[in-house]
């Protein structure tokens, strides 16, 4: 049988190499055709902005102006030392910590209730989650109406108890409280649903074993459920910090020009596109924001990786 074939019919190594090369080129061509549009868009509208922000951030530059002065790191200095800059950090810190802590605490309580085996909870879960998917603009408008000191729903509640509604919009601190409340209202369901999923992944026999060992319901929660929710809690801390730092829609609609509510992203917008049009300073905020979020996300990814390994 071997004799039936002449050697010439078998490809020699160079020809084989060429065939292999052609195949590789074809695969690459398909790969690029499938991926290139997305990659080019990402390069143009995510990576290029990242780089150009660094350049912009060193300019004293009014948005729209033809010329700008190079000022080195002055914008960063302003961001970390000037009263405006420090106030932004203070507001961001208060806003982030209070929204994260309160959403997670109430979210956990809601999850515990939703985890009970009672009819109607599927509906309740859907309802609780629903604000999370709604337009921040619409939500902000609705709550503007509720917080209106003269005719808002809340003012009627205060009137019922014989009190006057505080003027949420005039007082800087109250304005911050107001947007925190609305932000929590919108994002609470996310925490509740994620905690609910965490609770349901706890093996039932663990809790039963603890019950047999005479652990009461409260003790069971603190010695078993809560520790086992550790990864969920960590995940939520990271994701809610990330989204709180990016809050914008509600802040812009409820306090259009910022009034004690200038968290980092809102300040980035107001400085660049508000009355000041300080584009260079806005770019500096962008750079710092990116670094902060990048570090937080990297920490999360490392943790998740470890979790996967030991799971």
């Amino acid at each position: 049988m071997k004799a039936a074939l002449t050697p010439s019919e078998v490809q020699d190594p160079p020809a084989q190499k060429a065939a292999r090369h052609r195949r590789g080129v074809r695969e690459w061509a398909t790969f690029l055709a499938f991926l290139a549009p997305n990659v080019l868009l990402i390069l143009a509208f995510i990576y290029y902005p990242l780089a150009s922000n660094i350049y912009y951030s060193m300019l004293d530059w009014r948005l729209g102006a033809a010329s700008a002065d190079f000022v080195g790191l002055k914008n960063y200095l302003t961001l970390f030392t000037s009263p405006t800059g420090l106030d932004m950090w203070r507001v961001t810190l208060i806003f982030t910590i209070s929204t994260v802590v309160i959403s997670m605490a109430i979210g956990l309580l809601l999850a515990l209730v939703l985890n009970r085996n009672i009819p109607g909870r599927t509906f309740a879960r859907t309802a609780v989650f629903s604000p999370y998917v709604l337009s921040g603009v619409g939500v902000g408008m609705v709550w503007n109406f509720i917080f209106d000191p003269q005719i808002g729903l809340l003012s009627h509640v205060f009137a019922f108890f014989g009190a006057n509604s505080p003027d949420w919009y005039l007082d800087k601190n109250l304005a911050l409280v107001m947007v925190i409340v609305v932000y929590i209202w919108k994002n609470l369901g996310y925490c509740a649903v994620v905690y609910l999923a965490g609770l349901q992944s706890i093996p039932k026999d663990l809790l039963e074993a603890a019950a047999i060992d005479h652990a009461g319901p409260v003790r069971r929660f603190f010695t078993i459920s809560f520790p086992l929710l550790g990864p969920t809690t960590f995940f939520l801390i990271i994701t809610t910090i990330l989204s709180s730092m990016q809050a914008f829609d509600i802040l812009r609609i409820m306090t259009p020009t910022g009034h004690g509510t200038n968290t980092i992203v809102f300040e980035l917008f107001l400085q660049g596109f508000g009355v000041y049009q300080r584009a260079g300073y806005s770019a500096a905020i962008s750079v710092v924001l990116f670094l902060a979020l990048f570090i937080i996300t990297t920490v999360q990814m490392r943790f998740v990786e470890r979790k996967v390994h030991y799971a």
Binding site: L112, N115, N117, T122, Q200, L207, G216, P217, R220
Partner: peptide
């Protein structure tokens, strides 16, 4: 809430997968 739910988890659970199906 905590107390009651703790008890609920220990007792029931046949339906746990249903509620999380959405997730």
């Amino acid at each position: 809430i905590i107390a009651g739910t703790g008890a609920g988890v220990a007792r029931t659970g046949a339906d746990t997968s249903g509620a999380v199906a959405g997730v």
